[in-house]
Amino acid sequence: MKRFLAIILAGLMILSFSSCGGKDENVIKVGALEGSGIDNVLSEEHNAHSSKGNSGVSNRTIQIVNYSNLSSALMDLESGKIDSIGHDVCTAKYIAARNNKIAVVEQPDKIINYSMMTMDSNKEVYDILNNAIKDMKADGTLDSLIENELKAYIENDPEPKDLPHFEGAQTIKIGVTGDLPPMDFVAANGKAAGFNIALLTEIANRAKVNFELVQIDAGARAMALSSGKIDAAFWTKYITCDICNSAGAEKIDGNLITESYFSSTGSIIQLKSDK
C-alpha cells in the first residue's frame, strides 16, 4: 500500500512540475499540418486575433509547430501546448461540430488548395486525374459535388459509398490518410469516407478506371509515391489569395500536382476559452 501511494505521489509531483513550466507569453504557437505551407502565409491578423486585448501584440512572434495529423494537433491544442491550429474552414467547422471546446475564426484572405499528386514519371495517371478535374470544373459537376457532398459530410455522418468497379479497367492506387475530415476520413464501419471519395467516384465514372484505396500515414505519402506503392495521393497547400488565381497544375520536386479540385478559405482553430 505504501509503495502504491509513493508511486501515485511521484506521478503527481511529475505532473505538477511539468505544468509549472513558464509559458513564453511573447510566442504564439500555431499548429500546422506538415507541408501545408502555412508558415509562408501566416499574416499579422492571426497575431492580432489571438492576442485580443493584449497591448503587447506587435512584439509577439509566431512559432509554427508541425504535425503529421490533425488529431495530434488537436490534442496539443486541448492540453495548451499550442495556442491555435491553422487550417481550412471546412475542416475547422467539422471539428467544431463534434468537439464543443473548439471555436473557429475564419480567415477569408487565406486559401487552402486541395489537389492530387503523382510522380512526374507517372504522367499517364496524372493526365487521367487532371483531365477529369478540369472537365468536372468546366461542366459544373465539381461545384455541385462541393455543394451536396461536402456540406453533408461537415454536418452529418452520411453512409460512405463504394467506389465503382469496371471489369478489366486500369486500376490506380490512391493513398488516403483517413485523418483529414471532412475530405478524407474513415467511417465508423471502417470504410474510407469523405469528399475525396465522392470525387474519386466521379473521376472513376468519367475515366472508366478503378481506384484502389491504400490507407497510409500522412508522413509516408512521399515515400509511398516514390517507391510506386501508390500512384497518387491527395495534397493540400496553404496559399495567399494574391497567388490563388495562378495556382493550378504545377511541378514540385519530381512530383506533378493536379489542378486544385477544391479551394477553401483558411481559419484559426482555437479553444473557446482562449477566444
Binding site: L70, S71, N99, V186, A187, G190, I216, K229
Partner: peptide, 22 residues
C-alpha cells in the same frame, strides 16, 4: 500505419480523426 497496415493504433487514429475526440 506507415506501411499501409490498419493496426490497432491506426484504427484509434481513424476514430480520433472522425470524431475529433483524440
Amino acid at each position: 500505419g506507415y506501411v499501409t497496415i490498419t493496426d490497432l493504433t491506426r484504427v484509434i487514429n481513424n476514430i480520433s480523426a472522425r470524431t475529433m475526440q483524440p
